[in-house]
């Protein structure tokens, strides 16, 4: 499958009447990469995916697949396949007929189509299930048939629309790894929609976070987790404590003050108009300090770590510490100990 192609959006809009589902979106997926579109429901990620498939046509802007402008092409004319959230297996055809469908309707002979289908069914580990009807398969098997059907034409781009949402938690992890495996083995270009941030971080070369019909931020999983650009992103990807206040910088680094309390942040890059301090619950230590206005309200033991909920003048904080650290009893006044690089300054 050497023909994996890149996908490029240039200032694409999709409007339904007065409402824009996608507003001025530009991004590029390199050939052979797995890129996820992540965002809360209604953010425009599925519409973006359908724009790539050609199931929706852009109201404005340009869409390229490889070197070709496909903006005006319908789904049947694009070299793109899709794995649907509901799998969309044809219930009146058996597994083999489902997978053969693509080659058959594109004019392949029955024999060729069968050979192509058999190969892909082997690839997803469903040899021996050819004669079953979709309704006679488990959810995980149905999902694999859907994948086999989508890759049978060796498309330049493969799309996944929330492929794991109908599977249970254990299976989800395995199928996620299988998809990533298949993608890197065959060198496929994959665009993958999900609303699950953990799933997105785990499988992607690059994550594009959408919010409210625009791209909020794109980057590698670690970029997004460690350097969120907005309050929304800090909160949406992973857990974060968010405090509004003022930043100031000096020779040693930066400090942050809010509600009469000052924190040393160490060396940290301050963006312009920095207004909110964000930090992950597991990147900050706590130590008893009777002078501090912060006090532990309650705690919970969750196996590998201990979660503290701390009362603060602006609300509450969540701090997660490894269980090997000594227990600090409820009611103790504590101060925060920033680990180097833990503080993230976010513009207001």
């Amino acid at each position: 499958m050497a023909k994996a192609a890149s996908v490029e959006f240039i200032n694409v809009f999709k409007r339904y009447g007065d409402v824009a589902a996608v507003r001025g979106v530009s991004f590029k997926v390199e050939a052979g990469q797995l890129v996820t579109l992540l965002g809360p429901s209604g953010c425009g990620k599925t519409t973006t995916l359908r724009l790539v498939a050609g199931l929706e046509l852009a109201s404005e802007g340009t869409i390229r697949i490889g070197n070709d402008d496909v903006t005006q092409l319908g789904a049947a004319e694009r070299d793109v396949s899709m794995v649907f959230q509901s799998y969309a297996l044809f219930p009146h055809m058996n597994v083999l007929d489902n997978v053969m469908y693509g080659p058959l309707v594109s004019g392949a002979s029955k024999k060729d189509a069968e050979a192509m289908a058999a190969e892909k069914l082997g690839l997803v580990g469903l040899k021996g299930y050819e004669k079953r009807l979709p309704s006679e398969l488990s959810g995980g098997q149905q999902q694999r048939v859907a994948v086999a059907r989508a890759i049978v034409l060796e498309p330049s781009v493969l799309l996944f629309d929330e492929p794991l949402s109908n599977l249970d938690a254990k299976l989800r992890r395995k199928v996620r790894d299988d998809i990533r495996d298949l993608q890197s083995r065959l060198g496929l270009t994959v665009l993958y929609v999900t609303h699950d941030q953990e799933e997105a971080l785990a499988v992607s070369d690059k994550v594009i976070v959408m919010d409210n019909a625009v791209i909020a931020q794109e980057g590698t999983p670690s970029d997004l987790y460690e350097r969120p650009k907005t309050r929304f992103l800090a909160d949406f990807i992973g857990e974060a404590n968010l405090i509004d206040g003022t930043f100031s910088s000096n020779a040693q680094g930066a400090t942050f003050s809010a509600h009469g309390m000052t924190l040393d942040l160490g060396a940290v890059q301050l963006p312009e108009h920095a207004k909110t301090l964000a930090f992950r619950p597991d990147r900050v230590g706590i130590a008893p300090d009777p002078a501090s206005p912060l006090a532990i309200r309650r705690q919970a033991y969750i196996g590998p770590s201990r979660e503290y909920v701390i009362d603060a003048p602006w609300g509450e904080l969540l701090i997660v510490r490894p269980v090997r650290e000594p227990i600090i009893p409820n009611g103790t006044a504590v101060r925060l100990l920033m680990e180097p690089g833990a503080a993230m300054a976010i513009p207001g």
Binding site: L55, S81, F84, Y101
Partner: peptide, 15 residues
């Protein structure tokens, strides 16, 4: 009948 069945057919190149 879910619409995605039609769409699946279309993305597989069927008119």
């Amino acid at each position: 009948i879910d619409k995605s069945l039609d769409e699946a057919s279309t993305t597989l190149g069927a008119s």
